[in-house]
Design a protein around this nucleic acid. Structure first.
Lengths: 252, 252
DNA sequence: CGCAGACTTGACCGCGCTCAATGCGAGTGG
DNA sequence: CCACTCGCATTGAGCGCGGTCAAGTCTGCG
């Protein structure tokens, strides 16, 4: 298990931040076209993980930040007593490992929710590069501060909002993030299980299920397993307080 | 209100990171003795705020990260509908504003909980300095990643733990942070009101009050208003899951 | 001395958790 | 091809933690 399939890439394929369709979401967005080579010099592409595989594990030596290229990833903290706390879901273009940057070991575990491809940025080289490229450093600070803000928003959601509001907020967050990736913002497939949603939002699985069917009965959404269609965005938005509106990760 | 008293400091006093008693907690800890001048060159010292004064406000232009020199600060997010979410408490040596770094505006509001003195690090100069000093940059990344981790721990606390566990965790966090500042870890004065604790931990004020008296009746703590004495650290530690054990900000 | 804000205490009730049973779809092997 | 299983999802019944509302009590400060 957790077996990593490393693809041998032809040298011609190596330099591809230039052509990557995610370049306006991922790290390249902070780099001038003519400087992109320097980012490409340090990135390791083509790491593929199957659904359920661990990408890295908590407390193992921290080597790289990862950018999701395709697929989806969840990160979580596991405590000694075995209980899990899901800390985030990551879509293509989003950067994983910011909570470990500067540390010796990964602060969380990352697991592929479906067949997933990632690019790795070795930390030492990344830190070095950010010192040479002010815009990139600024962008890293920005990404990390947004991660902090996102966590605070989540804390607020957990401490102040009802089950319905939490789920509405998650659906809207996913919606806007899918949309930014040129996919439908109203009809998409949830990459994660109900139990992951429940864990992330501090709810019981049963509650998640109940809210989904309640929303469906009210005609706000339509669900079939992991397939979701948002029918009434306005009501959905009305279900959450004016904050958390566009809580999304890694906005350009 | 929010009137800032800026002290005119004699030039001789300006360079004082060298002599600051917090240098092993604050930014100087990441800087070589012989490089400390460069940090002192950018720091603005001697900003004093009275209890209740706003140090900065959400959405105002982001200018500086602040280090608490004495006193205590709380940060919070205010939503359009007026509800508040306390996002953190900051003790001497701790750095405020990491959730705004890289952004245009402050992501939160900071308020002095008691008479408080802060040092300001203008962001532009700080970013520039971190590019010139690898260890300082590394340290900034580390501080920010710890802030993210702390937020995740908080989210876990909020979503998985009972009122008693949350309050035990906060008391222990404060205890270890006071101790690192060479103050008693078992007998201290809470800088924040019950309502701030409640807000931070996602509880009602009444619940905080009830838990305090319950703990007192069980002989675990002794309280008199904001004065707290931790009598039975073991039971207190036993009240929280093995995680969150040493959840503390800005550990060297 | 009196007022306002902070804190405590009590009574009540509802949201969401727990426990338990059932439904459902995909993969497996006879 | 169906029977079986296993993980995931849904649905129902009951209850307890903590929120809300409403009085007090304490404290510091003008």
């Amino acid at each position: 298990m957790a077996r990593e399939i490393k693809l041998k890439l032809a040298p011609a394929l190596k330099a591809s931040c230039h052509t990557c369709s995610l370049s306006n979401l991922c790290l390249p967005l902070a780099v001038e076209e003519n400087q992109l080579d320097r980012l490409e010099d340090i990135v390791e592409q083509g790491h593929i993980y199957n659904r359920g595989e661990h990408i890295f594990d908590q407390d193992t030596p921290f080597r790289s930040c990862l950018a999701v290229r395709s697929g989806a990833v969840k990160t979580s903290i596991i405590t000694e007593n075995g209980s899990e706390q899901v800390t985030g879901f990551f879509l293509p273009g989003e950067l994983i490992g910011l909570d470990s940057l500067g540390g010796e070991r990964y602060a969380c575990t990352a697991k592929a929710l479906e067949r997933t491809s990632v690019c790795k940025f070795p930390t030492e080289k990344l830190e070095e590069l950010t010192r040479a490229m002010p815009e990139l450093q600024h962008h890293m600070y920005q990404l990390m501060s947004r991660e902090i803000q996102g966590s605070h928003q989540l804390a607020m959601l957990l401490s102040k909002n009802s089950a319905e509001e939490r789920i509405a907020a998650l659906l809207l967050s996913l919606s806007s993030r899918f949309q930014r990736r040129r996919m439908s913002g109203t009809k998409f497939s949830l990459p994660m299980a109900r139990s992951d949603i429940a864990n992330f939002l501090g709810l019981a699985v049963e509650t998640v299920s109940r809210v989904f069917t309640r929303f469906q009965n009210q005609g706000i959404i339509r669900t079939q397993g992991r397939e979701v269609e948002l029918l009434d965005m306005e009501t959905l938005r009305g279900a959450i307080p004016e904050s958390n509106r566009q809580s999304s990760r890694a906005r350009p």
